[in-house]
Design a protein around this nucleic acid. Structure first.
Lengths: 224, 224
DNA sequence: TAGATTGTTAATCGATTAACAATC
DNA sequence: TAGATTGTTAATCGATTAACAATC
């Protein structure tokens, strides 16, 4: 879905590495989507991929894909397609998210353990550098290579580790309090797995995960 | 992100309950999004909500929200806002997803347990009616009120329980095989938590969850 | 009444798409 | 060469938004 925002004027392609214009929300969302498929394709050993194949997996029109990419350079080879590895690097460069980013995880329950032990974040340059839990019995135990810490250490950890994202895998009742603590510690991106409406200042981005809503959406198109 | 599709012609508002036209992808996605916030607001005891508040939480322009809703009826009250409970029912009616839907869960690991024991699906009318795992040691154990079953029973369970959605919370190596089995059993919607590109017939919808990609997207707007 | 918020219009802007020349 | 696929144009269509009368 496009959520109304600033347009993307023609990008100056030869501005010695300086990012000239902010991408529109739509373009950034689609590029992220291509990145998802490309990362999976690379894992499966694919070397090239065509705009049509990307279209099959993302449901974005293939012309739109070629258009999005050609705005930043000529990355493809006619008759062949796009080099998977090279395109991943290009999109990461365009999104300026090529580096490593540190995240703090809250909640060492089933979901927290699932996140800590999976590669879903690591594959995209996100490192879980700290895991917190409110349950004193869990503090000190190990989850996915990390020692579970006391939430009282939050401010210190955020500063020392350079945490830019907080992931909330906690019950709804604990989410707002943690969000407040994260904001106070200077974190500006919160990924919320709990079923709560979080109140945060306007310069903080909250992304609330809603698999059930995604499912409802898919179901609508199935039923009609 | 809008992913190119059929448009939504003007809706005939007074066609005795019969759904006249299919919604556009954009409208359906936004309505699902409103539903997410409304469901959370209801949990928090809210009785009414304004289009501006919905806008704050969804980042959809408030005029767009009023426009989306007014296409189906006059649900709001000027000077007051929308009744939360009533609007949930209306959107569910519009999306034709007001009933209960049965889903089968694959994988009784951390993620599977997290899903089975949470209310994220139940809150939106999705019931986990079966949990499967390939590990024979887990079969027969109880997870979230369900007995873990053998994957060999898949076909039978889908038929008997009327499963319409399969949720894959399994390692990437097992995902494609299970997707094939689900398709063979007649399931047409697959929710994929694994990091795999699933090959399915064109009439099957696959939704692949990618929190890391969502995070990259959020990060882009934070960094620029 | 006064303030707030909806429902709706009209104008603009971006997304989408078909089509095709270029070229690998 | 023949087939495939990119890069790009031009036209259309839908999404977005400001503005404001209606009305609770």
């Amino acid at each position: 879905m496009t959520i109304g925002e600033v347009a993307a004027p023609p990008v100056d392609r030869h501005k010695d590495g300086v990012h000239a214009e902010r991408l529109s929300l739509g373009v950034a969302a689609r590029l992220s989507r291509y990145l998802q498929v490309l990362t999976q394709a690379r894992k499966m050993g694919r070397e090239t991929i065509s705009s049509q194949e990307l279209s099959d997996y993302t449901h974005v029109n293939s012309t739109q894909i070629r258009r999005d990419l050609s705005g930043f350079g000529k990355f493809g080879k006619r008759g062949v397609g796009y080099n998977v590895e090279a395109l991943i690097l290009q999109i990461r460069r365009i999104l300026q998210t090529g580096g490593q980013h540190n995240i703090a995880l809250f909640g060492a329950g089933h979901l927290g353990k699932a996140i800590a032990s999976s590669e879903i974040f690591a594959d995209h340059g996100f490192n879980v550098v700290a895991i917190f839990d409110a349950d004193v019995r869990k503090i000190g135990s190990r989850v996915g290579g990390q020692r579970v810490r006391d939430i009282a250490d939050l401010g210190q950890v955020v500063g020392e580790e350079g945490v830019v994202v907080g992931v909330l895998a906690v019950p709804a009742s604990a989410a707002q309090e943690l969000a407040d603590a994260l904001v106070a510690a200077g974190v500006r991106i919160i990924f919320n797995y709990s079923d709560t409406l979080l109140q945060v200042p306007s310069d903080v981005t909250v992304h609330t995960s809603s698999p059930a809503i995604d499912l409802l959406h898919a179901l609508y198109f199935y039923l009609s």
